[in-house]
Write a protein that binds this DNA or RNA. Structure first.
Lengths: 152, 152
DNA sequence: CTACCTGCAAAGACTTTGCACGTGT
DNA sequence: ACACGTGCAAAGTCTTTGCAGGTAG
């Protein structure tokens, strides 16, 4: 693979098939907005805010409420994951395989996003500074279901 | 130091002095709510939501708007940093030195928080699973001021 | 046909802002 | 004194929910 975050059309088509298969096994129906959302999530590199998704959906106008509901549904299927970049807006991205693993650099002012591929914390902070950022800090958070909640 | 997140009273007093000195050098005034907030931030281990801070302030009743405004002011002084755990509530913690560095495990259901002291990503995911969590993932985000914004 | 979906509008939750009064230095 | 800070209330965002009509399987 020439670039870590570039996927061939074949890769994307395969991933889309996987995702659609997952839907078929659930009781979710494959509606027009749903399909359009999944195509965006598979073909473009997230995470996306609700508004960004709405814009990308221009061909398939879709109420924000519907996007929220679908993201929640996809999250239940572990198809999508919610991210939070500290600006009070929910962001969603397709859950990927290991090779998808990456982190973000978020500008504290303009909120611009950059992807980075390495996965070592200390070294990465240096790398972020090397890219010209100042006042760098990072936050690494883990999400999971705790033992208590698993029993419920 | 016997435990990485335990500080002696002397340490805390010194840190509080540092922080108050920082305030003096700025044009912020040392008001009652302000002082109470700083004491909480120095003496207890955050991050805290606005509501949590309000509860801890019982002796110094303080409007939420005032807490928000003060956290913003402290952030400008690089005294405090905002965290986001993906539940739509702002959280704030004192900016610490290197030895303060830590990460969190957040239950996706009950939002319970645990602190962890190591700083290697892969190993940590295993560690999180070892603590009984399932469906573990993590998010590592960097914050900084990008080259563009520095020029402004 | 039935369960699931969607759009619209209303309600909710968190946060920000305006303004007049109060306070630290 | 004067600039800065606070409480209160109103306004702003983003998100969630209720409901009636529509649609996939």
């Amino acid at each position: 693979m020439s670039h870590p975050h570039t996927y061939s059309h074949a890769d994307q088509a395969a991933r889309l098939e996987q995702v659609l298969a997952l839907l078929r096994d659930s009781r979710l129906k494959l509606t027009r907005p749903r399909r359009a959302l999944l195509e965006i999530l598979v073909h473009e590199h997230g995470p996306f805010t609700i508004e960004e998704l709405a814009v990308k959906l221009h061909d398939t106008p879709c109420d924000p409420a519907t996007i929220y509901r679908n993201m929640a549904a996809f999250e239940d299927l572990d198809l999508v994951r919610q991210c939070d970049f500290g600006d009070g807006m929910a962001r969603f991205e397709l859950v990927g395989q290991d090779e998808d693993h990456h982190h973000h650099i978020i500008c504290r002012k303009c909120r611009k996003l950059e992807l980075i591929d390495l996965c070592f914390v200390r070294e990465l902070e240096k790398l972020v500074r090397d890219r010209g950022y100042t006042q760098v800090h990072h936050s690494l958070e883990f999400y999971g279901i705790c033992a208590n909640c698993q029993r419920e």
